[in-house]
């Protein structure tokens, strides 16, 4: 059993040379005055390149908000977010949008795919938006790894939940982004499909050095990660390396979840 390493809030994060994404003093507040809700109350965290990290925490701990801010989907109320050498918190909406389509991949829990596009079109959409053509060899490799060759002409509603998530992963991997963010990617799946999806995320990290950050509330899902970051009440509440379902569960209990 490994001991959670606590970070002290308010101190700048140790400079991590190989960090793909990091946040410093990240705050997110909804509303104002007495009714203000602090979803993130100053978070300092870093995610190493080529690592599979899970963000965990009880409901309302701010884990989804953290991911949205890290991915440039939401604007922070304070603090900094860095993607490699780029400070996201300084970018305008258009710059953020362009950055997202070139350097970040997404896998969401549900409504991952555009219903009007078939699987192939969904997979190449971000590159198309960026005006780029996918590398055919890499496209074939990704499709082969995810076992989608037979499904490329299917529309989303003709695919099972697991297949839809595999299409979403293929889309996220195709542009070889700096980081792939996955928000509860197995939330709507049965355990077998879920295991399959998590295995695919894990193997993409192991085999191609892809950086993956996943938000989940499922200890089993978290056990596929190299590292688990724990969040409670909008603050970092600990960290686990080489987690198992049991250690994650224990750590969560320690947070009172």
């Amino acid at each position: 059993m490994s001991v959670p390493v606590m970070t002290v809030p308010g101190e700048p994060p140790a400079p991590v040379a190989s960090a793909a994404v990091r946040a410093a003093g990240l705050r997110k507040t909804y509303g104002s005055g007495e009714t203000a809700v602090h979803a993130l109350a100053g978070v300092d965290v870093a995610f190493a390149a080529g690592e599979f990290t899970a963000i965990m925490g009880p409901s309302g701990s701010g884990k989804s908000t953290l991911m949205h801010c890290l991915a440039g989907l939401d604007t922070a109320s304070g603090g900094e977010v860095w993607l490699g050498d780029t400070e996201l918190t300084r970018l305008r909406d258009d710059q953020l949008t362009t950055l997202r389509r070139r350097r970040i991949g997404f896998v969401f829990q549900a409504f991952n795919l555009l219903p009007v596009l078939d699987a192939r079109e969904n997979i190449v959409l971000p590159m198309q938006l960026a005006g780029q053509r996918p590398d055919p060899a890499w496209f074939d490799a990704v499709i082969a790894r995810l076992g989608l060759r037979e499904r490329l002409e299917h529309r989303p509603h003709e695919l099972s939940g697991g297949q839809q998530q595999r299409v979403a992963i293929a889309r996220a991997l195709l542009a070889r982004p700096d980081v792939v963010f996955a928000d509860e990617p197995t939330g709507n799946l049965d355990s077998r499909s879920g295991a399959e999806v998590l295995g695919l995320l894990r193997s993409s990290v192991k085999e191609t050095g892809q950086t993956v950050v996943m938000v989940t509330h499922d200890p089993v899902a978290a056990s596929y990660a190299d590292r688990v970051v724990l969040l409670a009440d909008g603050r970092l509440a600990g960290e686990l390396t080489d987690p198992t379902a049991e250690t994650v569960l224990d750590a969560l209990r320690g947070l009172g979840a």
Partner: peptide
């Protein structure tokens, strides 16, 4: 809403 949100997340600018 969701479709457009997804497009925005995937890199469609406001102007686009």
């Amino acid at each position: 809403r969701q479709e457009n949100g997804l497009l925005r997340a995937l890199g469609l600018t406001r102007g686009q």
